[in-house]
C-alpha cells in the first residue's frame, strides 16, 4: 500500500515487505447476536467485524469508507455502544449484542433518527448515512445532543464527504424531540 501523497516519493531497489509466509490463521468459532438473530460463524481471526457483516453475512448496510477508523461509515452498536466495526475483529465479540443499520427499524416503522434523516435530507450520496444514523442513535442515548456545538463535537467521528452536515444536525435535533 502506498500512503498519502507526500512531498518526497520513495525510490529504492527492491523494497522489502515485512510479511513472511507463516502459519495459516486457523478458523475460530464465534457466536454473535446481530439485530436479535444469533449467528455462529467459523472465521479467520483476521476478519474484522465489518467484513464479517458485509462479506460473510451480506449485511451490507454497514459501510467500509476508510477501513482505518477515520470516517465512521462502519459505525455499529455493540451492547448499545457505538464503535467502529472496521477496527475490531469479529472473534472479539463472542456473545455480544450487535445492532446495525438493518436492525434499527421496527418492521416497516422507521427509527425516529431514520425518519428525521429523510425529513431533513440528512444525506446526499447516502454512503455515510448508516454510520451517521447508528452514531446519532447512540449520541441521543449518551445525552450528548444538548446544543448544536455539542452535537457537532460528538458526531465528529462520522464524516460526510458530501457535506450534508447542517441537515444531519437538523435531523438529530428533531429526533431528540421524538426520542426523549
Amino acid at each position: 500500500m502506498i500512503g498519502p501523497n507526500l512531498l518526497s516519493a520513495v525510490s529504492v531497489e527492491g523494497v522489502e515487505r515485512k510479511s513472511t509466509a507463516g502459519p495459516t490463521s486457523d478458523l475460530v468459532n464465534v457466536n454473535l447476536k446481530i439485530n436479535g438473530t444469533a449467528y455462529s460463524l467459523d472465521v479467520d481471526p483476521r476478519v474484522t467485524l465489518l467484513d464479517a457483516l458485509r462479506e460473510r453475512l451480506h449485511l451490507t448496510g454497514s459501510k467500509k469508507g476508510c477501513d482505518h477508523g477515520q470516517c465512521g461509515a462502519c459505525t455499529v452498536l455493540i451492547n448499545g455502544r457505538r464503535i467502529n466495526s472496521c477496527l475490531t475483529l469479529a472473534v472479539m465479540h463472542e456473545g455480544d449484542e450487535i445492532t446495525t443499520i438493518e436492525g434499527l427499524a421496527n418492521g416497516d416503522e422507521l427509527h425516529p433518527v431514520q425518519a428525521a434523516f429523510i425529513e431533513h435530507d440528512g444525506f446526499q450520496c447516502g454512503y455515510c448515512t448508516p454510520g451517521q444514523i447508528c452514531s446519532a442513535v447512540a449520541l441521543l442515548k449518551e445525552n450528548h445532543a444538548n446544543s448544536d456545538d455539542e452535537i457537532r463535537e460528538w458526531m465528529s467521528g462520522n464524516i460526510c464527504r458530501c457535506g450534508a452536515y447542517p441537515n444531519i444536525l437538523a435531523a438529530i435535533k428533531e429526533a431528540k424531540t421524538k426520542t426523549t
Binding site: 449485511l59 451490507t60 434523516f117 447516502g126 454512503y127 448515512t129 448508516p130
Partner: peptide, 21 residues
C-alpha cells in the same frame, strides 16, 4: 418532497458497487 430513494438509504438497503452478492 423527500427523496424517493431516502428510505433505502436510511435503512442501509441502497446497494453500492461492492455490495452485490
Amino acid at each position: 418532497l423527500t427523496r424517493v430513494d431516502g428510505r433505502l438509504k436510511v435503512m442501509g438497503q441502497a446497494t453500492y458497487a461492492a455490495e452485490f452478492a
